[in-house]
Design a protein around this nucleic acid. Structure first.
Lengths: 204, 204, 204, 204
DNA sequence: TATGAATGAGTCTTCATTCAT
DNA sequence: CATGAATGAAGACTCATTCAT
């Protein structure tokens, strides 16, 4: 049993190594410039070895995103469990979203800023993984807004509309900061807080 | 001299033809799926001919974006010349920005949603063209905000901060609508107007 | 000892399972589209396990053909034991040969229509198995012809020459029907019988 | 003009060189083992250069066969123009067919002995070229038989049936001699002539 | 005995780019 | 000015096979 366990652990380790290398390359080179070959080179394995762990490139990237966004979900969950007021929870969640995007810029860009035309010849199923994995955090955002409306701390309005509008705005902040790296932004901390003030304020 | 003139004119014509074909392909297929070969095919010239007019692919696309964003500038200018109130002008400008992005999704994505790491091995000059071309519209936005502050129709605040924050938000709307094509957005017209209400409202 | 026997039996069972799966795939997909992996998948064993039972792919296929052609031998034997007249026996044998080829097209093609150059880098032994396995049926054909000559029901002639010539003709019918699947053949039953009439007729 | 002519000639020369190398490899290694890379290596060009002359592998092979079978057609035509008797013409044609197959074994094997399953994932169109190119010689054979029937030198019978049956037989001779290179054939000249005697005889 | 992990050589193909003409 | 020819590097992926366990 010990053997089987070790094997499983080793297998998982390599899997994580692959995902790690992929994430790094992603960050450094962007999705387009990440190839199975380069991933393999970085971990010093043969390209074909990757195929023992992932069906194809898109699946690999899909897992990468899924796993990374699970982290965002976890963070949002943690915030909800802090027992803060609905409004504080919302504000903290929005901030967590932005922070997350800045910490995992490549993942964020890949999932939310990659035009779908890029996946022209790729199976729908595989793409679902990539596009789907942002949905659960959106749902969380919506839930947070619902609670605020319920508590009467923000204006009553169409929930879906409000949620989408709010998401678009924090997406703008996240994406903008993350992709436009040579834009001469003012102090980013200030910029984020100022923007959140406006966004949250405009809900009230 | 007549000869020289004609030559210059012809040269310029071909240049425009190339840019035109590139723009079409760009729109239809997105940056990644545009190749020099396809551009050449479309205008029925040899691929190598393109290199007589443009240094490389990125430069070509850079020019493309520059020219396209000039169109945005023109639109913003037109709005300013309408003689509307500062606030109306601002609102119309923001709206024009979003509309422009939706009309030229590939250009918008290329200029604002492409992580710069993608251009690792590419001459700075070429990249400058790409990244610079959004700046003038940002300046216009800033000017519009300044006028509103001046006129006292929006709250007095740090101009640069306000402008960047505002840009990030409308960028979010534009980018979100344009890249997340499979997201189940509510009625987009409504979504945009609602969001603009919030953004402009949060300035007051 | 009981243990050793059981082991041997189990080993043989797996061997047959492998050959069975290979035969199925062979039939469904043809030699080129059969891979060790696919065989392994079908029997739910690891690819490497196959190598415990067969040296390599060609050897495996060699055995496969050997076993399948043994079936042809059996059928020819059965016919001989029917106690028919020499000529009837011959005719029935030729027909059985063609039918066999049509039932096992992949095997037939592999053994008789694969140029030997394909096995350039493969051990002679393995190839022998493949090429040898058609010989015994040829010998049976020759015997049948000999008997007919002996009985005076066909023209006396060089036996080897006659046999080879006859084999080439029925080989043409078999191979043609089996490989040229998109050729617009007339009714195949008719075509076969008409051809056999001519072949047998030309012996008399 | 001289320049353009020379260019065209050179282009054609390379094209022929590619086809030549492909044919050689074909012969030596069989269709399966011929790759674009190997062809390129043999002519000492980059693999991508081949794609300037042929769309893809199947097209290349298609041309190879088409061109080769054009040669067979030419030979059959030449025979028809000799002004021989219908029967002599037929006999000579059958013989020419067999000789042709023996001279271009790889081409013959490829066109007539390659199971279509090999082209599983390949466009129908491309395959047509490969499979179609034997048809015109079959038509010639049919015409020859028709003339013989007309002249009353062979038995009147269903033309299509007779033609297909006859083709299958000479196909058997050709394919057998060409693929079964290690079979201990008797003197091939004798074998061919003997078989032709039988085939033609069985028409009368 | 059986296997899981790993590989290296190979598959076809596309692309941006260069250069002699 | 324009091009046709050519290329080298890279793309994703498959396969038969080996070997330590």
């Amino acid at each position: 049993m010990g053997v089987a366990q070790r094997r499983a652990r080793e297998k998982d380790e390599l899997r994580r190594k692959i995902l790690g290398a992929a994430a790094e390359l992603f960050l450094e080179e962007g999705y387009q410039n990440v190839s199975m070959r380069k991933i393999a080179e970085r971990i010093e394995y043969a390209p074909s070895t990757i195929y023992l762990h992932f069906q194809d490139k898109v699946q690999l990237v899909g897992y990468l995103c899924t796993e990374t966004f699970a982290e965002l979900d976890r963070r949002l969950e943690d915030i909800m469990e802090l027992g803060l007021s609905p409004l504080e929870t919302l504000r903290k969640s929005l901030r967590a979203y932005i922070d997350f995007g800045r910490e995992y810029p490549s993942h964020y860009i890949f999932v939310f800023c990659t035009p779908e035309s890029l996946f022209k010849n790729i199976e729908k199923e595989s793409c679902q993984a990539v596009y789907g994995c942002g949905m659960s955090s959106f749902e969380r955002l919506k839930a947070g807004l619902a609670e605020c409306m319920h508590a009467g701390v923000i204006r009553e309005a169409d929930l879906e509309l409000t949620a989408q509008s709010t998401w678009l705005m924090i997406h703008g902040i996240t994406a903008g900061l993350v992709t436009c790296t040579s834009f001469p932004f003012v102090d980013k901390e200030l910029l984020i807080e100022h923007s959140l003030d406006r966004i949250v304020g405009s809900l009230q």
